[in-house]
Every structure is written in structure tokens, then in C-alpha cells.
């Protein structure tokens, strides 16, 4: 990963940017990754030890560990004869401290819901169907 980790606030701004870019482009992807932030915080055992004790990873660490969140878009290169433009890959990342996880994910959910506008909305016809189903289901449970 090139570059520094962003603060959570800055990360959300950039994430909104990524989604916006994707929207204006009309196609493409946004990748989001989360994993335990182990660099410098957790000492991984040596390879020999890992083989010796395959369950080394399941021991609960004493202290909560931060979580690393990454986001990126896909780069694309210009292709002759199509509308495709060359797009640079943008990579952003942030580290979420354990005590901020809940707050972070609440904002994260909002950001993603706002950003993923291309997904299918619930259409009215389906809603009607569901209501019918629900009625049927509730009638069944009452019986």
C-alpha cells in the first residue's frame, strides 16, 4: 500500500469521491476490504511455530486490535475503438481503533448506501407481493 493511512473523517470523504467517480463513469467497481491491523501490533509467530501449533491464531489477544479498512477503484486503460478512458487507480485506507468501530460502521453503512446507487431499488410491484406473502405467513403462524 502506497501512502499513509487517512483519518476516518478523511477516509469517508475520499470514499464518497470513489463512489461518485464510479457513478460518473457509469461502470466499474469499488473494492472495500477490512482486516485485522497486525502490522507492528501483533507479533506473528515464526513459520515453524505455526506448523507446530496450528491453532496459534485462535488465542484471544489481550488487547483489542485496530481494524484496517481499505478502499480502491479499479484502474482501466484506454482502449481504442471504445469509450473507455484510462483511469488511475485510487487507493485509500484507514485504521479504525476498537473503541470507534461502532461509530465507524454506522457511518460506513450510510456512505455505502448512498454510494451504491446502481443497485436495484425495491419496486412497488414486489412490495405488494411481499405484503401478500406476509399476510399468508402470519395467517399460517396463527394457526
Amino acid at each position: 500500500m502506497a501512502g499513509e493511512h487517512l483519518t476516518n473523517d478523511e477516509f469517508f470523504k475520499q470514499l464518497a469521491n470513489l463512489f461518485e467517480l464510479n457513478r460518473t463513469k457509469g461502470h466499474g467497481s469499488v473494492y472495500l476490504t477490512q482486516k485485522r491491523f497486525t502490522y507492528r501490533n501483533v507479533q506473528l509467530p515464526s513459520a515453524d511455530k505455526m506448523i507446530e501449533d496450528p491453532l496459534w491464531d485462535t488465542y484471544h489477544p489481550e488487547q483489542p486490535v485496530p481494524v484496517l479498512i481499505r478502499a480502491s477503484n479499479n484502474d482501466s486503460s484506454k482502449r481504442a475503438g471504445t469509450e473507455r478512458k484510462s483511469v488511475e487507480k485510487i487507493k485509500i485506507s484507514t485504521v479504525v481503533q476498537p473503541d470507534q468501530i461502532e461509530e465507524f460502521y454506522a457511518r460506513y453503512a450510510e456512505a455505502c448506501k448512498a454510494g451504491m446507487s446502481g443497485l436495484k431499488k425495491r419496486d412497488r410491484k414486489k412490495g405488494k407481493k411481499d405484503k401478500k406473502k406476509k399476510k399468508g405467513a402470519s395467517a399460517e403462524t396463527k394457526v
Partner: peptide, 11 residues
């Protein structure tokens, strides 16, 4: 500590 979760939104 090794598993990761990637989510992809693609259009």
C-alpha cells in the same frame, strides 16, 4: 489475523 473481508460494488 489472516482472514480478510473484501466487498466489491461493481457496475
Amino acid at each position: 489475523s489472516t482472514a480478510r473481508i473484501t466487498s466489491k460494488y461493481t457496475v
